[in-house]
Amino acid sequence: MAWLKNIIVTFSYVLAGSVICAMVFIALFWPESEEKLTILWEVVVLSIFGSVGNLIFYSRHEMSKKKMKVRTVIHYIYIYAAVLSCAHLFGWIVPGNIRQLIVMIIMISCVTLSVGYAVKKKEARTAELINRKLSRMNLRKDENEENENKDRI
């Protein structure tokens, strides 16, 4: 169930980023609009599409670094395609409006980078926690070995 947990965590990150981006985008291009509750559901749908993309990384077999890199590229393409399709479908961008399209692409990049950064930070914290525990464990092991040697003497 690790994959499901991963998707839920990513969903929460993407949802938070998408809400902020939607607010900025509405303020920039639709300042007069009085959005109804539907926008929130649209953001939720968008976040679901964004997070299920993580399934691209799952495989029954161990993947090489090269395969992982290929899947990362596919993942990025998927994210941009999914978000732009949703934006078009929900009428967030007017077809032919290049400015809106560029801002949307910038926002997708910002959310993607932020999520990537948050995940990296989380991994670094986990590694730090494990290393702290390992060094405590190894220190204790050394002390025990030292004591055992003393006992032998």
Binding site: M68, E123, A127, I130
Partner: peptide, 12 residues
């Protein structure tokens, strides 16, 4: 294990 470090895509 001496230490761990984050590797590519969630691996350590």
């Amino acid at each position: 294990i001496k230490s761990v470090s984050p590797a590519y895509n969630g691996r350590f």
